[in-house]
């Protein structure tokens, strides 16, 4: 589903070169639920932006659902984001003054769908908010807002769901509920990437990719012993 080969990305900050991504390669198979974990400044945001087609690598190739997107134009990337990627943000990023339904419909409008309302209602039903479709974001709780955001990410039936600190703005109980929703969606076959610095959140995923100083590093075996024992865990470490 996702195949990244030798990604490099360098920023110049205050005259100093920062290697945000330094020869990163990784593979995520269809149906996986993977955590990308690292401290702040590790390059995980940059990796997420490239995986999410918001940014392009300086060099290297990135294949999303078999398509090389690393050389695409801005509008081409916008279309890939629209059809193949569902974003879920830390602070929900719903549009104010629009109802939950309108927020969920929005990606479909950009895709040119005419029957947006029906699909949007279905997506809201999946996240358990079928009866709240007419509420605006400020009339919903944090957990509900994040559910609307998940519905918006799901509605175009994307190849991957990309969640950036999805529980960061929620209390731990609500956060657990959102993670449980992710697991449920994963169990239905969705590919999910969770970017986080939180090991508790990462623990909910079946695999963890650790990034540090722009490189993917080997995990200390002690932290994820049970995954290694379960033999499902195949680290894509280069």
């Amino acid at each position: 589903m996702i195949r990244a080969e030798n990604l490099f990305k360098t920023y110049v900050l205050g005259g100093q070169e920062v290697h945000a991504l330094d020869d990163v390669s990784l593979v995520v198979e269809e149906g996986e639920m993977v955590a990308i974990r690292g401290p702040s400044g590790s390059g995980k945001s940059t990796l997420m932006n490239i995986i999410g087609c918001l940014d392009r690598p300086d060099s290297g190739h990135y294949f999303l659902a078999g398509q090389d997107v690393s050389g695409m134009t801005k509008n081409g990337l916008a279309e890939v984001r629209n059809r193949r990627i569902g974003f879920i943000f830390q602070n929900f990023n719903l549009l104010p003054r629009m109802t939950a339904l309108e927020n969920v419909e929005l990606p479909l409008h950009y895709a040119g769908h005419r029957e947006a309302a029906h699909a949007a209602r279905e997506a809201l039903a999946i996240v358990g908010l079928a009866d709240r479709w007419h509420h605006e974001p400020n009339q919903l709780s944090g957990g509900q807002r994040q559910r609307v955001a998940v519905a918006r990410a799901l509605v175009t039936n994307p190849a991957i769901l990309l969640a950036d600190e999805p529980t960061g703005a929620l209390d731990s109980k609500t956060g657990e509920e959102i993670l449980a929703l992710f697991k449920e969606l994963n169990a239905q076959g969705r590919t999910i990437l969770v970017v986080t610095h939180d090991s508790d959140v990462a623990a909910h995923c079946r695999r963890e990719i650790h990034i540090h100083d722009g490189k993917i590093v080997d995990l200390p075996s002690t932290t994820r012993a049970q995954d290694i024992l379960s033999a499902e865990f195949v680290p894509e470490v280069v």
Partner: peptide, 16 residues
């Protein structure tokens, strides 16, 4: 600006 960012993230093209 933030709204524009959100719209772009979910697939709005420059023309949109």
């Amino acid at each position: 600006t933030r709204e524009i960012g959100i719209r772009k993230a979910i697939g709005a093209r420059e023309f949109d």
